[in-house]
Amino acid sequence: MEVVQPMADFQDPSQEWRRLFSELLGTFFLVLVAAGGGMMGQAFPNTISRTAAVVAPALMVLSVILFMGKVSGAHLNPAVSVAFSLRGDFPWRRVPGYVLAQLAGAAVAAWFLQAVIGISATTGSNYPASGYSSFDAFLMEAVLTLGLVSVILGTASGAQNVGVIGALGVGSYIALAGLWGSPISGASMNPARTFGPDLIGADFSDFWVYIAGPLTGAVIAVGVAFVLRGYGGGRSGSAAAQGVLGTEVKRSDR
């Protein structure tokens, strides 16, 4: 009984706090390396290349999916949570909690970095490059997020987002997108990743780009997923989006 009851409590879908803590922790680690690359590069010049700065978040996302994907689905990104819900794989009532947890994790990470490194968190945020308009950056963020969410939804359709294949696919895409797309917009693809440093650094210049761009790309990706695979909401997609703690399945896989 001493073993069975705690396990039953853990499997209880009402234990939403476990999922929320998972999202907060995972987003904390993501922003720690994503914003930390720019901030450490500012504090210690010529130590972190652009390649290293964009690959580090990809490796962190890969790791986070592997160690906590089964708990919460490892969204780490408000745009991903919205996309999973639009797809029918994730309950809408859980989206506000997930988004708040992601924003909180990002803010804590940015605060930690600024406190320890002694450099403004704005140096680890995302802004349109000099010589490029906010609209240029918006288009870049939308297209990059379209690819990211397409990869996530595609691997989730086979329940691979809770395993090695999903982790490798998503991590690889983030690295590739950052390598070629980061000079113009920073390749955020994630409102929370930009929100944390902007909040702690008190500079929300062009922040709309990093909300509208990722959300636009995510919505388009849901449409692409429908064209490629039809409706979502099946067993495998729901398990990938929600984790495996009391997954709510809307439709059986066909």
Score class of each variant (00 low, 15 high):
Arg87Asp: 10
Ser63Asp: 02
Gly97Lys: 04
Ser72Met: 07
Thr51Glu: 14
Arg50Met: 14
Met68Asp: 08
Arg93Glu: 07
Ala52Gly: 11
Val95Glu: 04
Trp92Ser: 03
Gly97Asn: 00
Leu76Cys: 03
His75Gln: 15
Leu62Cys: 15
Ser72His: 03
Val80Cys: 08
Leu59Arg: 03
Gly73Glu: 09
His75Asn: 04
Leu66Ile: 00
Leu66Cys: 07
Leu86Ser: 09
Ala83Cys: 08
Val54His: 13
Ser49His: 12
Gly88Cys: 00
Ala56Asp: 12
Lys70Leu: 04
Ala56Gln: 13
Thr47Ala: 08
Ile65Asn: 00
Gly69Met: 01
Ala83Gln: 04
Leu76Pro: 01
Leu59Ala: 12
Ala58Thr: 05
Thr51Met: 12
Ala58Gly: 15
Leu62Ser: 13
Ser81Trp: 07
Ala83Gly: 08
Val61Trp: 13
Ala52Val: 09
Phe67Gly: 04
Thr51Arg: 11
Val61Ile: 08
Ala58Val: 01
Lys70His: 14
Ile65Ala: 05
Ala52Asp: 13
Val71Glu: 10
Ser81Asn: 03
Ala79Gln: 04
Val55Glu: 14
Ile48Glu: 06
Ala83Val: 09
Phe67Ala: 03
Val64Gly: 01
Ser63Asn: 09
Arg50Ala: 15
Phe90Met: 01
Ile65Cys: 06
Gly69Val: 08
Asn46Leu: 14
Arg93Asn: 10
Pro96Trp: 02
His75Leu: 08
Val71Gln: 12
Arg94His: 13
Ala83Phe: 06
Val61Gln: 06
Met60Lys: 11
Phe67Asp: 00
Val61Leu: 13
Trp92Cys: 06
Leu66Gln: 13
His75Ala: 09
Pro45Met: 05
His75Tyr: 01
Phe84Ser: 05
Gly69Cys: 06
Ala53Glu: 14
